[in-house]
């Protein structure tokens, strides 16, 4: 009983903390200085249609590298905790319809995922969304056949290759442009605004992020599927 009262008091304190923020919150009518610079820079300097993508990949590129590292750490934690060899679960084979259907859909989902992360600078989407979509394709295969085994060396290779390549592209910026240009997409020609091959290295970097996210989340669902 006393515990419940304390919990309610804590929540009340939280509400009182948030209330002034809600009451005095005034919605901006136009963009702030930083956001305006990002929008203009994305159009004029980077040739990237999707401003969110240029913020993630270029202006906040180092943050994204950190986020990918957090993702890698979480995956490493899952792999460490659930490292036991996968035991074959005795289960009824799934029906012919489910197996064929999942194999048919697998290719289409992978294709959509690749489309989403290669067009990250043009349309809504990008590496993170495309990577998660690729993971759902593998999840579909696991749901159709619980004893399915993935080739771990390929997964590991894609994961480490994309991680290393991401940093190498960033270092090319320092090498080719200047000391302050880590992860600068201008190492490749910027192309025409609105075309697939534009915005310099942004599509390349975002594809690498997509591969990395996809392979890491696939590792997670593979480990968790074995339990």
């Amino acid at each position: 009983m006393i515990k419940r009262i304390f919990i309610l008091l804590a929540l009340l304190g939280l509400v009182l903390m948030f209330l002034p923020f809600l009451k005095d919150f005034d919605f901006h009518q136009e963009l702030g200085d930083l956001s305006s610079q990002y929008v203009e820079g994305s159009i004029n300097d980077l040739n990237s249609q999707n401003v969110v993508t240029s913020v993630i990949v270029t202006y906040r590129g180092l943050d994204t590298l950190g986020e990918v590292t957090v993702l890698f750490l979480a995956t490493a934690g899952v792999g460490f905790l659930l490292r036991k060899k996968k035991t074959s679960l005795r289960s009824r084979r799934s029906s012919e319809l489910l197996q064929t259907g999942s194999q048919f859909l697998f290719v289409l989902i992978i294709l959509t995922g690749v489309y989403i992360f290669t067009h990250g600078h043009l349309t809504p989407g990008g590496g993170f969304q495309g990577g998660v979509l690729i993971t759902t394709a593998f999840l579909l295969l696991i749901l159709a056949d619980i004893n399915l085994k993935f080739n771990h060396s390929i997964l590991l290779f894609v994961e480490s290759f994309s991680g290393v390549f991401y940093v190498i592209i960033g270092l090319f910026g320092i090498l080719l442009i200047g000391m302050n240009s880590f992860l600068d997409p201008a190492i490749l020609p910027l192309g025409n605004f609105g075309k697939l091959l534009s915005a310099g290295a942004i599509p390349l970097i975002y594809s690498i992020i997509g591969l990395k996210v996809g392979s890491e989340l696939t590792t997670i669902i593979d480990k968790m599927g074995g339990e």
């Binding site: 930083l34 969110v52 993630i56 993170f128 969304q129 990577g131």
Partner: peptide
């Protein structure tokens, strides 16, 4: 609209 919050949330969802 402001692109920065969208960019922050995009990565936060996957994390």
């Amino acid at each position: 609209v402001d692109p920065i919050p969208s960019a922050l949330v995009l990565t936060a969802i996957v994390i």
